[in-house]
Amino acid sequence: MVVNKEKYDYLIVGAGLFGSVFAHEAKKRGKTSLVIDKREHIGGNVYTENVDEINVHKYGAHIFHTNNKEIWDYVNSFVEFNRYTNSPVANYNGEIYNLPFNMNTFNKLWGVITPGEAKEKIALQKKNAGIENPKNLEEQAISLVGTDIYEKLIKGYTEKQWGRPATELPDFIIKRLPVRFTYDNNYFNDKYQGIPVGGYTKIIEKMLEGIEVELEVDFFEQREFYEEKAEKIVFTGMIDEFYNFQFGELEYRSLTFNSEKLNIPNYQGNAVVNYTDRETPYTRIIEHKHFEFGNQEATIITREYPSEWSKGQEPYYPINDDKNSLLYKKYKALADVEKNVVFGGRLATYKYYDMHQVIAAALTQVEKEFKNNV
């Protein structure tokens, strides 16, 4: 295919999952794309960096999981996935509990053996709390798992993560909390799960083969120049920034990652350990080698510190409360009437996505974009 470097069919702002899937599918349909990203690497937040034979998840743990066979087959068409199963553990002041909340958790906490006993314990605690119609995250969590689990394994972690008291957080944040009455430490219920062999960056590299990519480019610093480079724009950045924050700034939570190499073969015995007490400043420690069953002599760990977001920081989690949802609707109304701009991904749609959801959304957008294209 001859690439017209003067004018492309698409300018894709962001080399993460959404932008890379779109660029790959556009290329399959004979379209040209220029992909730009302000970071020094492709992959967005799923980027993995090989450090001393260990694939380090630079922006937090990413475990691929889905019930959608088409999406699973799609990602496996780029790389092979291993059999990693997400089974995090919680550390509450030195006490270790299995996650998600299951019979192993209930047995250690209460000494119960059967699902019936565990359900009775939770029902009693819910009754004693007097919660009938949960109005916030705290009440929703107690209604799901009782007061003991809430106090030890949810409250501190959640308040660190969101920087707000649990009583001020909406109940929907916790509604998808996995609770199961089996001795099963698999966090996800999805049929398909794993980590790409060799890291996520390999997937993005495969998607972007034969496509022009420019890194360390800030779209907003050279907006006029890049807007002239293509017929249409696929924008995966912050939607409020695209519209120059004219209605105000959408709010996010941010993260800081502190990584270190340790000259020991095994630091914590698990890929992910959550620290659920309020006093520990970080929410979790990731030991990257365990995602791929590594046997290296050394190990690399990363501590995650949540923080308020401000300009210049990376936005990770949208704060989908009433105030921000109303603000986003104003920006979406502008986006909906754009004829030459496609908005996609978590920042452009102000929505938290798992990886399989990002890919599904990108493929749906591709079908919509090219439905009349033979």
Rank of each mutant, 00 (worst) to 15 (best):
352 Y>E: 09
35 V>W: 08
52 D>F: 08
348 A>N: 10
85 T>H: 04
344 G>A: 13
162 W>H: 08
248 G>A: 04
321 D>W: 01
21 V>A: 11
41 H>K: 04
65 H>Q: 02
235 F>M: 13
115 P>D: 08
146 G>N: 11
324 N>K: 12
259 S>E: 03
238 M>C: 01
294 G>V: 02
289 K>N: 14
354 D>C: 03
204 I>D: 14
44 G>T: 01
138 E>S: 11
146 G>D: 10
179 V>R: 00
154 I>W: 05
93 N>A: 09
230 A>D: 12
36 I>A: 12
10 Y>W: 06
309 W>V: 01
146 G>E: 15
296 Q>F: 03
3 V>C: 02
165 P>W: 12
137 L>C: 10
140 Q>W: 04
331 Y>K: 02
197 V>T: 14
279 E>I: 13
118 A>W: 05
355 M>C: 02
130 G>P: 00
368 K>Y: 03
242 F>H: 09
161 Q>S: 03
132 E>F: 15
296 Q>R: 06
260 E>D: 09
331 Y>S: 04
372 N>D: 15
164 R>C: 08
49 E>D: 08
29 R>N: 12
328 Y>N: 04
123 A>E: 14
233 I>F: 10
156 G>I: 13
21 V>R: 01
93 N>S: 06
362 A>D: 13
121 K>T: 12
146 G>C: 07
213 V>L: 07
321 D>S: 07
68 N>M: 03
243 Y>D: 02
319 I>Y: 06
306 P>C: 08
97 Y>D: 04
134 P>R: 06
187 Y>F: 13
269 G>I: 01
217 V>M: 02
50 N>H: 02
125 Q>S: 13
208 L>S: 00
270 N>F: 10
249 E>R: 12
